[in-house]
Computed example of a mutant assay.
Amino acid sequence: MLMMNRETEEKGILQAAQMICIAARTAPKGRGKDLLVSAILAGEDKTALQRKMVEIAERDSVSFFARDAGNLEQSPVLVLLGTRKEAMGLPHCGFCGFADCATMVKAGGTCSFNSGDLGIAVGSAVSRAADMRIDNRIMYSAGKAAVEMKLLGPEVAIAYGIPLSVSGKSPFFDRK
């Protein structure tokens, strides 16, 4: 008989995080270009990200970054999903607000398909987490801290964090 304990749950949540990253990877992408970057943080790596979130909260006067860092502290695992920036080269698009891809790249803009594809991947990821009944929340703040730390590589400029929790009550429910 296998008794569930904290150690067993943490091993299970790490396996679930891998499945969540797979769901993100297989999400549809514009022109079939896979620009998704994913990572799973736990332990000291996750703690370093929490510290960065608190630093950003103090530096930029955005208190919700500190609140989210507190939520992350209650989560044993964080899934990070980001996208590399690359123009899709679609003719007659302009969804990014620029006349064409060359103008967007020159201005330092972001292709709308990069952001859209990331959003679809994040949706697939949290849907998979929900299928496994794992508490989660999409956090811009954790993604922003990861981008500043270059955790997903220097070419990733847009990211989200998805903290995961398995507990008697979701730490993401009664947030202040």
Rank of each mutant, 00 (worst) to 15 (best):
M1G: 13
L2T: 09
M4A: 10
T8V: 14
M19Q: 13
M19E: 15
I22T: 12
A23T: 05
G30T: 14
G30I: 00
R31M: 10
V37M: 10
V37C: 05
S38V: 02
A39Y: 04
T47N: 13
M53F: 12
V54M: 08
S63P: 12
D68S: 12
D68A: 09
D68I: 03
G70R: 13
L72I: 06
Q74G: 02
S75L: 09
V77R: 01
V77L: 10
L80Q: 03
T83G: 13
K85T: 10
K85D: 00
E86P: 00
M88G: 13
L90E: 02
H92T: 01
F95I: 14
F95W: 11
C101P: 06
A102G: 00
T103R: 14
G109I: 03
T110P: 01
C111G: 01
S112H: 08
S112Q: 03
S115M: 11
S115A: 15
G116K: 02
G119D: 07
G123K: 10
A130Q: 04
M132N: 05
I134H: 07
N136F: 10
K144L: 09
K150A: 12
I162A: 05
I162E: 03
I162N: 04
K169G: 00
D174A: 14
R175I: 13
K176M: 01
